[in-house]
Design a protein around this nucleic acid. Structure first.
Lengths: 141, 141
DNA sequence: TTTGTAAATGCAATCTGGTTGCAGATATAT
DNA sequence: ATATATCTGCAACCAGATTGCATTTACAAA
C-alpha cells in the first residue's frame, strides 16, 4: 500500500487526506503495534502534539483506528479492513513489561463472559501484561 | 467489622494503623465499588491527596487492596480475605457509563485465553464497559 | 486564475491525575 | 524523658491530555 491508497482510505471515511494525516496513518499502518500519542510525537517531531491528538481523535471517531487504555495512557492501532465496526467495542492488547511495546491481539482470544444479572455490556478492554515472544527469545540466549 | 478489626487487619500486614489509614480502609471496606484517588479526596476532604496517594500505594504493596487501570485513571478496591495473593495479578472491573461507578467483578467471569506462541502472561486487566444493574432499572421506569 | 469560505495547523496555555521533597507533627522504643 | 523512625500536610512538579485562538492551507465557486 502506498500513499495514494492511504488517501483513498481516508477519503472513503470522509477524512481529508492532508500530508500530516497521511504521515500518521502511514506510520500506524507500518507498525503492527499500538502506539501512544507520545510515541508518534517522537516519530514525527515536526508535528505539533495537538495536531497528532486531533488526528487520532478524528481517526478514532471515524473508526479507522481504535484506542484502548493501556499501562499508563491511551494507545491506538489501525483497525483491520475486515474488522467490522460494532456498537460493542472490544479491544484486546498485550503489553510487554520488558520492551514496553503494546501488541494488538486478535479478539478471538476472548471467550464469552458471564456478567451479573442486570448488567449490560457495551464494550470491553482486555489488557494482558507479560513478556512478548521477541523478549522471551532474547532472554533465553 | 469495627475499627478494632480494621486495625488488626492492617497490623497483620505490617501496616501501622493510624487514624487516617483506618478512615481510608473503612471507606474502602464499606463500599462495594472500586474508588479512585479523587473519589477518596472528595469523601475525605480533611486529608491531603498525598496522604491518600501514599496510603493507597502502601495498601497495594501489602496486597490489602488491588488497583487497576480504569476508564480514565486508576481505581482501587479491597482484596477479599480469601483472595489469595498470586504472582499473576488479574483484575476484572465493570465500569458503568451511566453512573460512573466501577464494580469489582468476580474473576470467574474470565475464561482462559490463548496467547500467541512465545507470549508469557504475568497478569491481566479486564475492563467491561456498559450499564450496571442499578442504572438499567432506573432507566426502565 | 482569483477570491471567499471552511478546514487544518501550530503555539501557548490549561487541566487533571499522579508523584516527590521537605519540614513539622506524631508515634514508638529505649 | 529522650532519641529515632514514621507519618502527614504543604507546595511544587511532572506528564499526558485537551482547548482557545490566530494563522495558514486547501477547496470550490465565480
Amino acid at each position: 500500500m502506498n500513499n495514494n491508497d492511504f488517501a483513498s482510505v481516508l477519503q472513503r471515511s470522509g477524512i481529508r487526506p492532508t500530508g500530516n494525516r497521511l504521515l500518521i496513518y502511514g506510520i500506524m499502518h507500518a507498525t503492527q503495534n499500538a502506539v501512544s500519542m507520545s510515541d508518534l510525537e517522537h516519530m514525527l517531531p515536526e508535528l505539533d502534539k495537538s495536531t497528532i491528538f486531533r488526528t487520532l481523535t478524528l481517526f478514532n471517531e471515524k473508526h479507522l483506528i481504535h484506542g484502548a487504555e493501556d499501562a499508563g495512557g491511551m494507545k491506538y492501532c489501525i483497525r483491520d479492513n475486515n474488522e467490522v465496526f460494532d456498537a460493542d467495542e472490544s479491544h484486546c492488547h498485550f503489553y510487554c513489561e520488558s520492551c514496553g511495546k503494546t501488541y494488538c491481539l486478535d479478539k478471538s482470544v476472548i471467550s464469552n463472559l458471564a456478567l451479573p444479572e442486570g448488567f449490560v455490556m457495551h464494550g470491553l478492554n482486555y489488557l494482558v501484561k507479560g513478556i512478548c515472544a521477541e523478549c522471551t527469545n532474547k532472554e533465553s540466549c
